[in-house]
Amino acid sequence: MTAAPPIRLTGLVKRFGPLTAVDGVDLTIERGEVVALLGPNGAGKSTSIDLALGLARPSGGTAELFGGAPRDAVVAGRVGAMLQGGALLPTTTVAESVALVAAAHRHPLPVAEALERAGVTAFAKQKVGRLSGGQLQRARFAVAIVSDPELLILDEPTAAMDVEGRRAFWASMRELTGTGRTVVFATHYLEEADASADRVVMMRRGRVVADGTPAEVKAVVAGRTLAFALRRPVDGFDDRLRALPAVQLVDARADRLRIATTDSDAVLRLVLAERADAHDVEVAARTMDDAFLALTTAPAEESR
């Protein structure tokens, strides 16, 4: 049986004292998926990754890799990872670092091949302490792939890279993942999730708040929030707005309506045409938090 999914998190909870870092995460990632874990700092992305890899013990729920204990997958070399705070020794060269980790694995790639695949051959003989931020991330990537893993977990792999470095990194990533590898990467760049993932899982405050294709996520984030007040009673006008295809969410509170929409121009025209009593109109670009909210509450949301 090889059908077990690379990652299955069930009711996962992690508490640190009074802080609940991961608050009931259910998530299954299938073979060959490239999944972006998107969310602000402190959303629980890194803690979820630690739990999935067996580096931390859950306070509740279970984390499984390939249908078994995370440690078994690690021992078998089926999972490679670039972690936050998992750094290389500064006095060691890139090639030595990769060779050390390769020696710890049972069936590693030849060191030269791992260096080549990660695109670090040019600076393989340099000491880790002398690398630029982007080079360091690529060196860590070489270490992550040396066991030739089926599942790659990358926690903010492009942190400290400039735009050009980021582009180059994802280009070499795509070459690697062309062969049906499963990849999960954490990021707080929406563009990165959009460009490189075929599924986006959004986390906030330790929970999965949205799970869909990048197109779905982007549509919501690209939208705007329209708000206005009415002098006369709402009188079913909120339902009229909800029926519009471009409207994702309508929140009616007292005399004030807030509308999440992908076409604020059209909605605004309709509002002004039909309700002469509309005033105090605001149109604002959506923040990431609004996007999360819209995604979780919109009835049209397609969750997997």
């Binding site: 890899l53 580096l55 690690v74 021992v75 078998a76 070399g77 999972v79 490679g80 990872a81 972690l83 705070g85 998992g86 750094a87 290389l88 020794l89 500064p90 980790v101 710890a104 694995h105 049972r106 270490v143 066991s147």
Partner: peptide, 11 residues
């Protein structure tokens, strides 16, 4: 440095 964490992802 966190090198241990990297090694904990090996057998």
């Amino acid at each position: 440095i966190g090198w241990n964490r990297q090694l904990r992802l090996t057998p």
